[in-house]
């Protein structure tokens, strides 16, 4: 699975909402094949753009409150947070060039 740091219902506020960095949260679950497929691509993006964006993951099985709060109904769902607000949502596993395109404004 991905090398990204795990965030939880309990740590979401401190790790994501109150962070002064740009954070991408990868909402995922063990039983989701496309989530497993996209995880290594997110790892690559995180490594290549470490100065621009931090990528963390939230397991929706174990953290239902946060998943419900952000109305997740399809995973993988990737949400970019800045200053506690969702700035961008990408849904579904996509190839690296497509994800980089979707996230371009946060990676440049």
């Amino acid at each position: 699975m991905s090398a990204a740091k795990a965030v939880t219902d309990a740590s979401f506020e401190a790790d994501v909402l109150n962070s002064d960095k740009t954070i991408l949260v990868d909402f995922w679950a063990e039983w989701c094949g496309p989530c497993r497929a996209v995880a290594p691509i997110l790892d690559q993006i995180a490594t290549e753009h470490a100065d621009k964006i931090e990528i963390v993951k939230l397991n929706v099985d174990e953290n239902p409150a946060t998943a419900a709060k952000y109305q997740i109904t399809s995973i993988p769902a990737m949400k970019v947070y800045q200053g506690g607000e969702v700035k961008k949502t990408v849904i579904g596993a996509k190839p690296k060039p497509a994800l980089e395109h979707d996230l371009a404004e946060f990676l440049a």
């Binding site: 989701c32 094949g33 496309p34 099985d61 399809s74 995973i75 769902a77 949502t89 579904g92």
Partner: peptide
């Protein structure tokens, strides 16, 4: 991704 889905095993949960 907001209620329309093609994958029950992914999104049924």
């Amino acid at each position: 991704g907001h209620g329309v889905s093609w994958c029950a095993t992914c999104d049924g949960f």
